[in-house]
């Protein structure tokens, strides 16, 4: 799923400029092809994200990582915005933080996120973001959609009630595993992640059962079977490594 220009591989043949700019009053320097998000994180400035995951392509969709840039009226998603010389970036202005809260609240209303009975309780990125942004309650009415749980796979299950449509599962399956079992059907508020022809996961012919989708899922939407409330802890340290191995230029090591 190619939706954004591939990062140039830096080499002597293709040098990239080093830029100096400001993030939250701090002077930082970075290459021109490093996203603002990544530069901020390297400098210990945290910007909340949900659809972004190191090792996967960017989507720019959750809008939580928006930042203000001086002289630019629009708010820019830091995961797909690249620095310019002398740019001044503010990552946590009052305006930005209030929008982030509202977006997160909208996500809570969209599906049935009942933390108390969730396998990922305590280890959930959505839940953690709510704490980080200081959300004490959700101001918008909950939509309570009627959604299914698919436990047909022998080892994993998908609970659409907890999905935030970050599409990490779709991306990891396509970009890293190479199976493209997952995709997203429909559009708008009725969008839903599917396997193959919207069939039970267990009957998928293309799923390799690798479980990468489960590990990258930020919430309890994808989980391992046999895990009870708060027991599902995701491990995804393999991702940057796999991305590096699969993206490397010389396809094989000298034998």
């Amino acid at each position: 799923m190619k939706i954004h220009p591939r990062k140039n591989v830096r080499s002597d043949l293709n040098p990239s400029r080093l830029l100096t700019f400001r993030i939250d009053e701090r002077v930082v320097s970075a290459h021109e092809d490093e996203s603002i998000l990544s530069v901020a994180r390297q400098n210990g400035i945290s910007i909340p994200t949900l659809c972004h995951l190191d090792g996967l392509s960017e989507r720019g969709a959750c809008r939580l990582c928006i930042v203000e840039v001086k002289g630019v009226a629009r708010l820019l998603p830091s995961c797909v915005t690249f620095p310019r010389q002398d740019m001044e970036i503010i990552t946590a202005s009052e305006r930005v933080v209030s929008y982030r809260k509202k977006i997160l609240e909208l996500l809570f209303t969209e599906r049935n996120h009942v933390c108390a009975v969730c396998v990922s309780n305590g280890h959930c990125e959505l839940q953690n973001l709510a704490v980080e942004l200081g959300i004490s309650h959700v101001r918008y009415p909950y939509l309570y959609p009627r959604l299914a749980v698919d436990a047909s796979h022998s080892r994993f299950s998908v609970d659409h009630n907890r999905c935030v449509l970050c599409l990490r599962c779709v991306r990891v399956c396509d970009e890293i595993e190479g199976a493209h079992t997952w995709d997203i059907m429909g559009r708008g508020i009725t969008s839903r992640v599917i396997t193959d022809l919207n069939q039970p996961w267990g009957s998928s012919e293309t799923c390799t059962g690798c479980g990468k989708c489960v590990q990258v899922c930020p919430t309890g939407a994808l989980s391992e079977k046999g895990k009870s409330v708060a027991e599902m802890i995701k491990r995804r340290q393999f991702l940057p490594y796999l991305q590096m191995m699969r993206g490397r230029q010389d396809e094989s090591w000298p034998k």
Partner: peptide, 13 residues
């Protein structure tokens, strides 16, 4: 299209 959260959920709300 349902890609970004503000539009997907915002239009419905």
């Amino acid at each position: 299209c349902g890609k970004c959260a503000p539009c997907r959920v915002g239009t419905r709300q």
